[in-house]
């Protein structure tokens, strides 16, 4: 669907060259909700704009729907862009047009007949839940409503791809949830591939099936959301994950645990099949020791559960060692460093 091969983008700013995107290769499949996460300045905003050539790559190859973008004429590009919807952090609605007029604009660009436009816009406004707001102007709407108009407008010409540039970053958590649900509905009902960029791991966790982590213009980690969450490799990825999974001990709690030393604490990660069985309680009761959960969380990711617990075992050291070995056969167990 969208292929980026060794794509780089360098800006020239006051005579200095700034590389925003460095040698990025990504394959986004049809039907994906692909999330790119990174801190501001990581290059994700530039990256998403390369897909519809709002920014031209300095090098590398981009293919969208089997069209290589390197040799595209400006007329072909405009045709292609009508099959790529885009929504924005600041909504970018036309203030001089009503809600209806905003959604109708891309159809007017394609010279649709008036009745067809009416029918299509009404259908889209119903889809995003704004059928009663057709005659309102953007300034009369809330942020969430504005983004719904943005989504309806982006979907007007039935695109195959929807690009989301920090689409929920200007919204409160509740509205963010509503918009994310709507995007999920867009993906499922209209079979539209979504490429979104965000700095909120919550967005990735909620709707994405694949994720790429960007740092300093490079993609440093990429994969299925569940796999990346359950087994992150890079520090930046771990930092992002800890923003939504509460998997880190607070300094206060660490101090408290230190006082109990030499007692050892273990981090146990449950993923996949392990989450549906009472492994921890079975193994400990078999060896007749007790365990105490200090801290942890269980989350649902991509319809699978993912648990992360910090546990203390109450028993003789040799027995605990046996228990740990048995646990390690089915779970990921690590001793917590309290330094």
């Amino acid at each position: 669907m969208i292929k980026l091969e060794n794509v780089s983008k360098t800006f020239e700013y006051k005579g200095k060259k700034v590389a925003a995107v460095k040698d990025v290769s990504l394959h986004i499949n049809k039907g994906d909700i692909f999330g790119i996460i990174g801190f501001s300045g990581a290059g994700k905003s530039t990256l998403v704009r390369l897909v519809n050539l709002l920014e031209k790559p300095t090098s590398g190859e981009i293919t969208v729907n089997d069209h290589p973008l390197n040799s595209i004429s400006s007329r072909q590009l405009r045709q292609l862009r009508r099959k790529i919807g885009m929504i924005f952090q600041s909504f970018n609605l036309f203030n001089s047009r009503t809600v209806f007029g905003n959604v109708a604009y891309p159809l007017k660009l394609e010279n649709w007949p008036k009745e067809e436009i009416n029918r299509r816009v009404t259908e889209l406004l119903r889809f995003v839940g704004l059928e009663d707001k057709a005659d309102k102007y953007p300034e009369q709407l809330s942020g969430g409503q504005k983004q719904r108009v943005g989504i309806a407008r982006a979907l007007a010409t039935s695109p195959d791809i929807l690009l989301c540039d920090e689409a929920t970053s200007a919204l409160d958590p509740e509205t963010t949830g509503e918009i994310l649900n709507l995007l999920k509905k867009v993906n499922e009902e209209y079979k539209i591939t979504i490429l979104l960029i965000t700095h909120e791991m919550n967005v990735i966790r909620s709707i994405c099936n694949r994720v790429a982590v960007m740092e300093n213009g490079r993609v440093i980690e990429e994969g299925e959301v569940y796999n990346v969450f359950s087994d992150p490799r890079e520090n930046t990825t771990k930092n992002f994950i800890s923003t939504v999974l509460n998997d880190r001990l607070s300094p206060h709690l660490i101090e408290k645990l230190k006082k109990k030393q030499p007692t050892k604490f273990y981090r146990i990660i449950f993923s996949g099949e392990a989450t549906s069985e009472p492994i921890l309680s079975e193994i400990t009761s078999k060896h007749n020791i007790k365990f105490n959960i200090i801290y942890g969380s269980i989350h649902e990711l991509q319809n699978q559960l993912f648990g992360n617990l910090i546990v203390e075992f109450l028993g003789d050291d040799p027995v605990v060692e046996v228990v740990l070995n048995e646990l390690r056969m089915v779970l990921d167990v690590k001793e917590v460093e309290l330094a």
């Binding site: 709002l54 405009r78 862009r81 036309f94 001089s96 891309p106 660009l109 010409t157 690009l163």
Partner: peptide
């Protein structure tokens, strides 16, 4: 005019001519 609005029009596949008469002038009219 917010450059984002012009960017959005470009992303919709509007030509420069369409942007001038369909977006720039109506947006700046007041």
């Amino acid at each position: 005019i917010d450059p984002g609005i012009i960017e959005a029009s470009k992303a919709m596949g509007a030509s420069p001519f369409q942007i001038i008469f369909g977006v720039l002038i109506p947006e700046a009219l007041g």
